[in-house]
Design a binder for these strands. Structure first.
Length: 629
RNA sequence: GCCGGCGUAGCUCAACGGUAGAGCGGCGCAUUCGUAAUGCGUAGGUUGGGGGUUCAAUUCCCUUCGCCGGCUCCA
């Protein structure tokens, strides 16, 4: 029953990697898709043959060892859950002792000590009532709660040393099979992810089969930190969040602003090509507008309000009401639909202080926002066109892998949603059809839709592997009704318009942050704040350097000349570290031949090139928005 | 907002009860240099803010602001 191909891979990692699991009905249970587990009762052991699941099992087992170590060091602990994650594992604990990072080495040492005892993972099958008695009598309130919810099932537990854990497994046979591990951080976490429940203490760790793999992972983490957009943003002088001035609000420095300007220019072009019209709407409006839209009722805790004369104004948290007012400014005919109103709309939302994160989670941001008003027969093509555009934009920046989510309503609780059930059904099927048309694989998330409509979201991944939503495409069944927006159909009857809300790069702030991490700060030529640095060999070449700079600037390129009184190597290094795509060295030979000696940031010195040729080459790369240097 | 950690010069860090130091960066001078750091000199800090303990606080305690890692929530 072992699949040959991947069994070989596992063997190469660790010759005797086995897992134990429970045969609940007295036979082999396939808890995961691809993992072979023993029938505990006859002691037979089967090999694990899925590498991913083997690693998961290793990590899960390591989390149990950690729990054992913690229970030895802090006997008053009670256990939450301790699953593997994509990168490692964690375990949640409840106890009076406040964990700090200083505890981690102690816990690791205790884990090593226990591992050396070669403890066995001992599975057993429990009746629900036995399990309840057992965990309740051991003061494991949290585990008891989990068991209580599992009505009528046969349950399993695993003993490791003197710790019995309610767990479905599988686990490695014994601690002798555990690999290299490292505890990484402590964090708070809410029990069952509910902020109204008790807060537990979580320890994150990771584990690998070999110490080499662990070291590689830790090295990758370190390298990822060097790509952190907060660090690079400062080093490259792109943006800042001055301390104590306005948390979560971004100051764009000239270089960052230049990158943003180029992104916006690109967006504007691509949108206008596709029939979008750009608008501007005010940043504040009387709260009445926001009462009509429903935001005042449902979004108030995220909104900034301000008194003006005797009235209350709201700093806009969204652009939709503004665009709706433009739509509504006169009667609309079915002939003029679809109307696509776009705006680089700056919105402000109060976010809890603990959620702020560099450029990726802020309190004021500019969305590449648009609202599409259309007829039912136009929806499908509008949705597909929007996905096409999102794909085109993201791929131009070089993003390939991303996570696509379809968020639909919870059909068990339709009372929580605006709009008619048939609207929801139809919208959902349009979104699914469009995703199929694109051939995209996506994750469907039940109950994750906004209350006003289903949506498709696309997330990108930052340097540390965290995902950040950028693209969103949402149906809105709420606002059209609240604002009563309609169009006159061919029979001159008023029909309700269908409204799509969409932002493709999401927000300029978040997108910029991800972009910086994606490129490691080395922007492609079309986005680079400085596209070429002219580097004179000595002072007598300054005139020519200035001439080269100005000639190139004359063709629209962004060029600086480094006239500092420094040696060539110094200036090269300086340009290299600021990640300028091209350095143009000019000395006697170049002055003589009206050339520049081209050095690109990736491949180094490329030799001399006539100035005009260089200008043409770079101009072309910029025009094509090429990703290559 | 919650849990834990951290705030020393523009940046990266040191000193950790006896009153603050380095490298880089900045500025000045010399040097005029061929593809990742020329030399010398110099300025720059009420050690995030406030309060307390102490003869004495950057160091210990409290508080506040901010940041970092998570949780919750989201573009």
């Amino acid at each position: 029953m072992t699949r040959k191909g991947s069994a070989v891979q596992i063997r190469s990692h660790l010759p005797f990697f086995y897992a134990v699991g429970i045969g609940i009905r007295g036979s082999i249970q396939m808890a995961g898709q691809n993992i072979m587990k023993t029938i505990h009762r006859d002691g037979t052991v089967h090999e694990v043959f899925d590498p991913d699941e083997a690693l998961e099992t290793l990590r899960h087992s390591t989390s149990h060892l950690m729990a054992l170590a913690v229970s030895h060091l802090f006997p008053e602990v009670s256990l939450g859950i301790g699953p593997p994650t994509g990168e490692g594992f964690y375990y949640d604990f409840q106890m009076p002792h406040r964990l700090t990072e200083d505890d981690l080495p102690r816990i690791e040492a205790k884990m090593e000590e226990l591992r050396a005892e070669n403890l066995v993972f001992e599975p057993s099958i429990l009746e629900r009532s036995e399990a309840l008695d057992f965990f309740r009598s051991h003061g494991e309130e949290l585990k008891t709660e989990l068991i209580e919810e599992r009505k009528g099932e046969v349950l399993s537990s695993y003993r490791l040393g003197d710790l019995v854990d309610f767990c479905t497994g599988p686990h490695v046979l014994s601690t002798a099979q555990l690999g290299s591990f490292r505890l990484l951080s402590v964090a708070g976490s809410y029990w069952r992810g509910d902020e109204h429940r008790e807060q537990l203490q979580r320890i994150y760790g990771t584990a690998f089969f070999s110490s080499r793999e662990l070291d590689d992972y830790l090295k990758r983490l370190e390298e990822a930190r060097n790509r952190d957009h907060r660090k690079l943003g400062r080093e490259l002088d792109l943006y800042s969040v001055p301390e104590g001035v306005a948390p979560g609000l971004i100051f764009w420095h000239p270089k960052g602003a230049k990158v943003r300007e180029k992104i916006e220019e690109f967006l504007r072009e691509e949108h206008e090509k596709r029939g979008y019209e750009f608008v501007y709407t005010p940043h504040i409006a009387k709260s009445d507008l926001w009462r009509t839209s429903g935001h005042y009722e449902f979004f108030l805790e995220n909104m900034y309000t301000l008194p003006v004369d005797e009235e209350e104004y709201v700093l806009k948290p969204m652009n939709c009401p503004g665009h709706i007012l433009i739509y509504k400014s006169r009667k609309r005919s079915y002939r003029e639909l679809p109307i696509r109103l776009a705006e680089f709309g700056t919105v402000y939302r109060y976010e809890k202080s603990g959620t702020l994160h560099g450029m990726l989670r802020v309190r004021g941001f500019t969305q590449d926002d648009a609202h599409i008003f259309c007829r039912p027969d136009q929806v499908f093509s509008e949705v597909v066109a929007t996905l096409d555009l999102a794909e085109y934009l993201l791929s131009t920046f070089g993003f390939q892998g991303h996570e696509i989510m379809l968020a639909v309503w919870d059909s068990e609780h339709t009372e929580h949603y605006a709009g008619k059930p048939e609207d929801w059904e139809r919208a959902e099927s349009v979104l699914i059809q469009a995703l199929e048309e694109k051939g995209w694989t996506y994750r469907r998330q039940e109950g994750e839709a906004a209350f006003y409509g289903p949506k498709i979201d696309i997330s990108l991944i930052d340097a540390l592997g965290r995902t950040w939503q950028v693209t969103t495409l949402q149906f809105d069944f709420n606002l059209p009704a609240r604002f009563n927006i309609t169009y006159a159909d061919s029979d001159s009857r008023e029909q309700h318009v269908i409204m799509l809300h969409r932002a493709l790069l999401g927000s300029m702030e978040r997108f910029m942050g991800i972009l910086v991490e994606h490129y490691g700060g080395a922007f492609p030529p079309w986005l680079s704040p400085v596209q070429a640095a002219v580097v004179p060999v000595s002072e007598r070449h300054h005139d020519y350097a200035v001439e080269v700079r100005d000639r190139l600037r004359g063709t629209g390129l962004r060029v600086e000349a480094d006239l500092r009184n420094e040696k060539l190597g110094y200036k090269i290094r300086s340009a290299q570290m600021s990640k300028v795509p091209y350095m143009l060295v000019v000395g006697d030979r170049e002055v003589q031949g009206r050339t520049v000696s081209v050095r690109d940031r990736r491949r180094g010195n490329q030799g001399a090139c006539p100035l005009d040729d260089f200008s043409r080459m770079l101009g072309q790369k910029v025009a094509q928005r090429s990703l290559d240097v």
